[in-house]
Design a protein around this nucleic acid. Structure first.
Length: 231
DNA sequence: GCGACAG
DNA sequence: ATCTTGTCGC
């Protein structure tokens, strides 16, 4: 009898080997520390795919603590790399970097849609981008990639630690950002620690499941997507 | 062998 | 991520 097999073409083992190596190389550059000072500008980063082979990445910059939107930019281009769980960054980072270069207001920290170190090799896209940009970054994901946790309380603000499946090391925090909705997975990326990642996530909540940076980046990605599809 | 698998 | 209608709950 046949056994379960995830949909889509199987990942090329040769490619996976190479990416794993590059990823572990980058991991050695990751640092976790408190933010330099009180951040004034925080960016939100997210990507969408208007077509199967094109990517559109967005950056929004908000003022803290008002959460007022001060800038939004995007980059649209082709994607070559396929999506392979655990190697998302190699598929999205190139275009994300292009989008970042368009910002006129350099943020103090970046909130990325995806995981920071809550990753099999501690190199989620937030950590990956942090190393490439050499900037403070942290990840806010809607789904778990790795680790285990006990369900946090159902009330907004409840938090539970995300632990490494094998070592019990704390790799992130599971946060209930809104009453009775599925929790968020927050983890530091680069030049940022868990305390700062968690504090900023909570400071950016406005009644929605997603914190403003990520929520707005997601929102504008949707708008820009319509634009490029018409053009 | 079995389950899991960000966006 | 993306493709999609109706439907449940506050």
């Amino acid at each position: 009898m046949a056994y379960y097999r995830p949909p889509g073409p199987p990942p090329d083992p040769v490619l996976v080997r190479e990416l794993t190596e590059r990823q572990q190389q980058m991991r050695q550059q990751v640092r976790h520390e408190p933010l330099p000072g009180e951040p004034r500008l925080i960016a939100g980063c997210d990507s969408s795919f208007p077509t199967p082979d094109t990517i559109l990445s967005v950056f929004v910059v908000l003022q803290l603590p008002t959460l007022e939107l001060v800038e939004k930019v995007y980059s649209y281009g082709p994607v070559d790399m396929p999506y392979v769980p655990g190697f998302l960054s190699f598929r999205e980072a190139p275009n994300v970097m292009e989008a970042f270069s368009k910002l006129k207001n350099p943020p103090d920290v970046i909130m990325v849609d995806g995981h920071g170190i809550a990753h099999p090799r501690r190199m989620g896209i937030a950590a990956h981008l942090g190393v490439l940009l050499d900037m403070p970054t942290f990840g806010v994901a809607k789904q778990k990639l790795t680790g285990r946790f006990t369900e946090p309380g159902t009330e907004r603000g409840s938090i539970a630690p995300l632990l490494d499946n094998k070592t019990d090391e704390v790799i992130g925090q599971v946060i209930r950002s809104k009453d009775k909705v599925l929790p968020l997975f927050v983890s530091p990326g680069h030049r940022c620690d868990q305390a700062a990642a968690t504090r900023l996530t909570l400071a950016c909540l406005r009644g929605y499941k997603l914190p403003e940076p990520t929520r707005l980046a997601d929102h504008w990605a949707e708008q820009f997507k319509k634009e490029v599809r018409e053009a």
